[in-house]
Each structure stands twice: as C-alpha cells, then as structure tokens.
C-alpha cells in the first residue's frame, strides 16, 4: 500500500436501479494527477460511475470515499464536469459563461459582479479563455460557436473553479476527427500545466489509450441471458498506460467485441 493517500477510494461499490444492477463490486483507488479513461460497451454504466463521483447519483452499496470523506450527495465546485452537450449556458456570452463561476462564489445574492470586482474577475476569465484558445470569441454566444469551441468553453468554465477532479462524459463524441485531435492536444496540455485529475468516458478505445495514464474497461463478468439485468458491470481491465503496449489494445478490443456479442440485441 502506498503512503500517498488516494484521492478516490472505492470499496465494493455497487449501483442498482430497482432490480436492475448497473455496477457491482467496484474496487479502486485513484491518486491526484491521474488521467483515467473509461471505456466499455454502450449502457454498461460508465456514465453512472461518473455520476456517482459528480454526486447526482449515490452508490447503492459499498463505500466510496473522496479525499477520505464519503462522496457528496450533490454536485459541488470541487468536481468539474463537461458533458457531450448542454454544458454551456446559451443565454450568456462566452466571457459571461466563464465569469459566472466566479460570480457564484463572490456574489451570493445577485450572482453578479460589478465595477472593480468584475474587472478583477474578468482578468481571471480572460486567462482561462486564452488557455483554451477562445480569446477571440469572448463576446460571442454559444450558438455562434462550433461544437469544438463549445467544448473548449465548457472546459474553461470548469477549470476556473480549480476543481479537484475534472469529469468528462464523452466530451468529444460529437466532434469531427480533425477537431477531436486538437481537443486531445488541448486537454493533455491543460492536464500537465494545471496538474489536473481527470476521469474521461469515451467510446473511442484509441482515444482512451492515447490520452489516459490509466485505462479502465467496464464490463460484466457474469452474464444471465434470461435476465441480463441481474448482473452489473465492474472494472475488468485496469491498465497503467505508461507501461502498456499494442497487445493490450488488441486484448481489450477483442474482449469488448465478445461482450457486445453476448449482450442481448437492442
């Protein structure tokens, strides 16, 4: 056991919706600074895992600790999130979308800053807009941005709160391959520069291998063809990616194909 305290510590965590078991027997530790990518077949519970960290879902069983404390029951500023869409506020300009995070903290009643306080905050906002490459779009509205730029905005929004973990649920799933490459570079740069701890769900295995320092495969270890809801997914592969090679990618790919074959046709 390492001396360093894990940021996240799951012991025998399970998640059920009624009689449907989604996740079972999740045991894991994650240290600050790791970049965990989560892959698995559609519907296997990756988003559910992320939602437990986020606080919008609670584990049904087991113990889930965040920095030694039980996971919060609701979302909070120590855990940032980027969804595939709807992450940004359509009624606010790019700048205001990022500023609002500071306004929430510094203006409890109005949720708005004025005068000098606003200028100070805007300097911070502009730093983050530059970090994600949106400086020139700062006065535009989200509907005037491309999909990739909207995701950059969502990332800047999250990072200005300096969250302990950054959660990304298929953030680049709707983007063109070229744009996706740019986003990979951006995310890696930000992860290194600000020593982020990242959990990222992706359906693109190559993306998972390329970005992560650690890759998790969610899958069922037991199958009941009569009642597929009886068993949930767990982490079947936990690969430290610095040491991994091509053979792991092939092994994971064939294992996922196998479970897609076993899953009842949708």
């Amino acid at each position: 056991m390492s001396l360093e305290k894990p940021l996240i510590h799951f012991r025998r965590v399970g998640k059920e919706y009624g009689s449907t078991v989604v996740l079972e027997n999740i045991n894991t530790r994650v240290k600050a600074g790791e970049f965990v990518t989560l892959v698995g077949t559609s519907g296997c519970g990756k988003s559910t895992f992320l939602k437990m960290l986020l606080g919008t879902e609670q584990p049904s069983s087991g113990s889930a600790l965040f920095d030694g404390q039980p996971l919060a029951q609701e979302p909070g500023p120590d855990r940032g999130i980027v969804f595939q869409k709807y992450s940004v506020f359509p009624h606010l300009s790019v700048r205001d979308n990022v500023l609002v995070g500071l306004e929430f903290a510094r203006s409890p009643w109005l949720g708005r800053l004025f005068g000098g306080a606003r200028q100070t905050a805007l300097a911070e906002v502009d730093h983050w807009l530059e970090a994600v490459g949106l400086t020139r779009a700062s006065h535009q509205y989200p509907h005037e941005l491309s999909g990739g730029m909207q995701q950059r905005l969502a990332i800047a929004q999250a990072l200005i709160k300096r969250p302990r973990v950054l959660l990304l649920d298929e953030p680049f799933g709707a983007l063109d391959p070229g744009i996706r490459k740019d986003m990979h570079q951006l995310l890696l740069k930000l992860w290194q520069e600000y020593q982020l701890t990242v959990f990222m769900v992706t359906h693109d295995l190559t993306e998972g291998f390329y970005l992560g320092t650690r890759l998790w495969v969610f899958d069922k270890t037991r199958h009941d063809t009569q009642a597929p809801e009886r068993f949930g997914s767990t982490i079947t592969f936990d690969l430290p990616l610095e040491k991994t090679g091509r053979s792991d990618l092939v092994a994971v790919e064939s294992s996922l194909d196998e479970s897609r074959r076993l899953a009842p046709a949708a």
Partner: peptide, 22 residues
C-alpha cells in the same frame, strides 16, 4: 436540460443563484 443545473452546481451556485442566473 438537466445538464445545465448540474453544471451550475459544479460552478458553486446555490439554489437561489441557479434560479436567478440560469
């Protein structure tokens, strides 16, 4: 979208702020 409510909470908004600003 529920995502916006969640997002606002991760940006530190309290209930009142979610109502007046989102």
């Amino acid at each position: 979208p529920r995502e916006q409510l969640v997002k606002a909470q991760t940006l530190g908004a309290n209930s009142w702020q979610v109502i007046v600003r989102v």
